[in-house]
Design a protein around this nucleic acid. Structure first.
Lengths: 143, 143
DNA sequence: GTGGCTGCAAATCATTTGCATATAC
DNA sequence: GTATATGCAAATGATTTGCAGCCAC
């Protein structure tokens, strides 16, 4: 059940603790780009002693080890994602859904014109998702 | 002196107020991607009655009118920029500088694979800027 | 004249910090 | 056994809100 996550932590020489395994499992099973509150309140149900601080701590160390990445796309709070390289994100300005975008952006992991070394690229696409467009058509074009 | 900014506001049928003109002028003259505090404390010197709230309000309405854009690139606070379309940003993880990147990312202003309508694209490139790389070489490769 | 804007103080909300206890190795 | 992680409560810091007075149009 947890071997997969144990392995990930071991591979990065991180201590194996319950909160880290749970956070990792949660992100692996929910590719919805949850914020801290969502992760916390969900895990709290089965692990009542869990604290928000620990969720923050766990995410922080997973992030430092490039196991997860944080997204500032929503504006108000950070959202988290298992860090599979080379994908970007779309946020719907209507419903707030955050979707993975698999187009490759050129110039990743390169040195830019000015000589700046790029270590990470995040592409944030904002607009109206398919679903919300359909809804709009449905009720003509008012509101 | 302010005609340029008056025109911008008029073109968007916004009321011409001193805070709006000053914020606009500040961003036009400082392409450093300042945060609210920087804008506020700078303008406060010459306009002592200015309030932080008004800076927030002004930026908000300028943003709604697509005259400025906000960047969530720094993590902790929003940074602002005169909104010239089609440019992206690089942040140096060492010194925190935010630089304009002029490469064009494909797939802007298009409909993505999933049928999502894109209205805005922000590319955040993170790494080590030229200057900081030079500094590092200077002192060998420790610390 | 009036609706929208400004500016103040208080509230909110995500995140961080300090610290005592617990636990992985 | 010890360094590190957890969990609690309090602190911080950016941003928002409520509201009274003011000003652009």
């Amino acid at each position: 059940m947890y071997e997969k996550y144990v392995k990930i932590l071991k591979d990065h020489t991180l201590k194996i603790t319950s909160p880290r395994l749970e956070v990792l499992k949660y992100l692996d099973e929910h590719h919805t780009h949850p914020n801290v509150e969502e992760i916390y309140s969900s895990l709290k149900k089965t692990h009542p002693s869990l604290s928000r601080t620990t969720v923050y701590n766990s995410l922080e160390i997973l992030k430092k080890n490039r196991i997860v990445q944080s997204l500032a796309i929503s504006g108000s709070e950070l959202r988290y994602d298992i860090d599979e390289r080379l994908h970007h994100h779309f946020i719907c300005n209507r419903c707030g859904a955050i979707l993975d975008i698999s187009i490759a952006c050129p110039n990743m992991d390169k040195t830019l014109q000015g000589g700046h070394r790029v270590e990470e690229v995040q592409g944030y696409f904002k607009g109206i998702c398919k679903k919300c467009q359909t809804k709009e058509k449905g009720r003509s074009n008012n509101g």
